[in-house]
Structure formats: structure tokens, C-alpha cells
């Protein structure tokens, strides 16, 4: 649905997006992840034909964003960082205006307006001035205008930024429910968002592509090895953790054992093995042979956050916020 090849955008001084390439399939819901200033907004603005790339190529639904920009715009719904609302208009009047702008008219237009009002749960503020709406409602009106012409592709720039936790959940659910009908790219600098909403993730940092994969693969890939968490407890008395650790390290294929937690009588270890070697069976046998109990054995998934830090070379500036951010979506500075 979307292909991006060597896309580059240079501003007067900075290179905001530097030769990134990726593609998005029809029906995907893709998270575009990166810390502030990574170039997410810039990339999205190129995809939505707000401005042309400095070099490189991008196509949406087979149309080039530069040469066939009107065709691309017909097929895209875009929610910029700050919802583009005319504050002196009423919600319904605004949606009609956007609908007409996107080529709808007559009964068709009215049908779509009613539909998006229901879908985005804004029917109760139809007659209100946009300037009087709360932030959550504004965001939903922003989403409503993006889907009004039933576009193939939805591009959402930080759709949950600046909302409170309840609104964030509502917005996420709304976005997920839209996934069936549209191909969605949403940007965020918040990791849990991607883990919760997206199937695939594209990570960029300082304008460069860092990784693009499914969320699961990425977690596994970053590890570069298999690892499991085990909880070991003795039948009687208490377990001497160092002894157990030594014992576990002797098992063939195990590369590292780390004590994670001591829980009452038992201990939790993280056991890493070389990639491709399955050591779970050996682990279990060794533990039982030592006369201990194996209370738990599960693969240890790395949180996306750890992956992210690992991939972007955990410098302080790139540390993403785990908690929902409170900063307002500041309008872009203009050169």
C-alpha cells in the first residue's frame, strides 16, 4: 500500500529524514516509533504530500507522492500532530466542509458525516463549536475528519499525545477498530502504545531507520539469543542461590545465568542460551536431578522499551518516556 525508497528531507540546516526505506502492506497497522525530533512528523508530511521529499521516492496505493499528489491525497486521511480544527465552526459544519473538500457531496456526504459521528462518538457534540470542545473530543473530531472520505490509508501523527489515560484508551480502541477498513500508520514516542496497538513497528532515530519488523520478532531479534525465566525451589530448607547458579551454568548450551529475584524459598533465574539451542529440557532435568522443584519456566520477553534502547544506543536524549506524556503537541517551529 505504501512504499518508501531512500526518502530524504533536508531542512536549511538539519537532515530530518535520511534515506529511509520501508513498505507497508494493505490492512496493516504500523507503529512509527522514535523519540522526539526523530523525523516522524517530517516523514508523515511527505507521505501526505504536505511537502515534497528532498530526494527519494514514496508511493501510496501505487501513486507517487510528488508526481501524482492529488491522487495520493484522495486516498489518504491525515491527522496532524495538532488536530486541524477551525475553532469558530460547529462540529457538523466542519465535517461537512472537510467532506466536500475531499470530494463528497449530497446524500453521500450526509451519510458519511452521520457515520463518522457515530463511529468516533462525537454525535453528542455535533452542534457545538469546536473551540468549546475538550481535548479528547477535539482529537476524536480530528480522527473523524481523517476518515470522512473512507480513505485507503490513515496517517495519524501522535494521536494520543496530550490526552489523559482514559482518553488515551478510548482513542486507542477507536484506532484499533478502524484497522479493519484502513491501512494505518501511527507515530508515537511512547513504547507501550506500539505494543498495544500495532502489529508492526518501524523505528527511526535521528532521521535514520533503525528497525522495521513485527513487534514480536523485534523483541526476539534484539535479544540475539534465547532466554527463559525459571523459578527454582528446594524441597526442604532453603536454596543457596550461588550453588544453584553454578549448577545451571554447567549445563551444555547455557551461556549466562543471572539471578533475578529471590522469592521466599525459591529463586528466579534468567537463563540465556546460544541462539538456536533449546535447553529447556536439559534445564528441567538438571533441576529435578538436583532434587529441586521447577516451579516455573517461561520465555523471557524483552519489553519493547529495552529493545528500543538497545537499538538506538541508549543515549540520554533518546530515552523515550514510558508514561503517557503530558506535554502538549507543540506546533512545529517554522523556518
Amino acid at each position: 500500500m505504501i512504499t518508501v525508497t531512500d526518502l530524504t528531507k533536508r531542512y536549511a540546516r538539519t537532515t530530518a529524514v535520511d534515506h529511509i526505506s520501508f513498505s507497508v502492506n494493505k490492512g496493516d497497522i504500523v507503529g512509527f516509533l522514535g523519540p522526539n525530533g526523530a523525523g516522524k512528523t517530517t516523514t508523515m508530511r511527505m507521505l501526505t504530500c504536505f511537502f515534497p521529499p528532498t530526494s527519494g521516492k514514496a508511493t501510496v496505493a501505487g501513486f507517487d507522492v510528488f508526481d501524482q499528489s492529488i491522487e495520493v491525497r484522495r486516498r489518504i486521511g491525515y491527522l496532524p500532530e495538532a488536530p486541524p480544527l477551525y475553532l469558530e465552526m460547529e462540529t457538523i459544519e466542519y465535517l461537512r466542509f472537510v467532506g466536500r473538500l475531499k470530494g463528497l457531496s449530497g446524500a453521500d456526504l450526509e451519510k458519511r458525516v452521520t457515520y463518522v459521528c457515530d463511529r468516533c462518538a462525537i454525535a453528542d457534540v455535533k452542534m457545538k463549536l469546536l473551540g468549546k470542545l475538550s481535548k479528547g473530543y477535539r482529537q476524536r473530531v480530528g480522527l473523524a475528519q481523517a476518515i470522512i472520505h473512507n480513505p485507503d490509508v490513515l496517517i495519524l501523527d501522535e494521536p494520543t499525545a496530550g490526552l489523559d489515560p482514559k482518553q488515551i484508551n478510548e482513542t486507542r480502541d477507536l484506532i484499533k477498530s478502524l484497522a479493519g477498513d484502513h491501512t494505518i500508520i501511527l507515530s508515537t514516542h511512547i513504547l507501550p502504545e506500539v505494543e498495544q496497538t500495532c502489529e508492526r513497528v518501524i523505528i527511526i532515530n535521528k532521521g535514520k531507520l533503525v528497525a522495521t519488523d513485527s513487534v514480536q520478532n523485534l523483541q526476539a531479534r534484539a535479544r540475539g539469543a534465547e532466554s527463559v525465566l525459571i523459578e527454582v525451589a528446594p524441597r526442604t530448607g532453603s536454596l543457596a542461590a550461588p550453588t544453584a547458579q553454578q549448577r545451571l551454568e554447567k549445563i551444555a548450551g547455557v551461556s549466562r545465568v543471572q539471578l533475578k529475584e529471590e522469592r521466599g524459598q525459591g529463586s528466579v533465574f534468567e537463563v540465556e542460551s546460544d541462539k538456536g539451542k533449546l535447553v529447556r529440557g536439559d534445564l528441567a532435568r538438571a533441576i529435578v536431578e538436583a532434587g529441586w522443584d521447577l516451579n516455573e519456566l517461561r520465555p523471557s520477553a524483552m519489553s519493547l522499551e529495552e529493545v528500543f534502547l538497545q537499538l538506538t544506543g541508549s543515549d540520554a536524549a533518546a530515552t523515550p518516556e514510558a508514561a503517557p506524556s503530558t506535554d502538549a503537541p507543540a506546533p512545529e517551529a517554522e523556518a
Binding site: 492529488i70 486541524p84 477551525y86 475531499k102
Partner: peptide, 16 residues
């Protein structure tokens, strides 16, 4: 339009 960001709506709509 530039101040409140609506220019992004106009400039990404299928109008010249």
C-alpha cells in the same frame, strides 16, 4: 491557518 495548523488540512486535501 498557519497559526492553528489548519493549513495542513488544506494542503493535504485533494485541491490545488
Amino acid at each position: 491557518e498557519k497559526r492553528n495548523g489548519t493549513i495542513e488540512l488544506l494542503a493535504t486535501s485533494p485541491v490545488r
